[in-house]
């Protein structure tokens, strides 16, 4: 009987110690959020920078002469 209680105590202690193992920075899955590499050209600054040239290009390319 004393052996059984010591085994139980050791098991509880072991489980308690093991629960502290593992990486603390667990990555949780966020659905619908882009997971790939960041594209610098996707930013608002980049889009604003190319807006003018693209607008001018469209005006000259597609209007009927």
């Amino acid at each position: 009987m004393p052996i059984k209680s010591s085994v139980a105590l050791a098991s509880v202690l072991g489980m308690f110690l093991l629960s502290g193992c593992g990486a603390p920075d667990v990555t949780m899955y966020e659905p619908g959020v882009y997971k790939g590499k960041q594209d610098a050209a996707a930013s608002e600054e980049a889009a604003a920078a190319r807006e003018g040239p693209l607008r001018e290009r469209a005006q000259t390319s597609f209007t009927d002469r």
Partner: peptide, 10 residues
Amino acid sequence: PVDCFYTTAD
């Protein structure tokens, strides 16, 4: 399922 799409600001 792997969320590989993104949309640029424009």
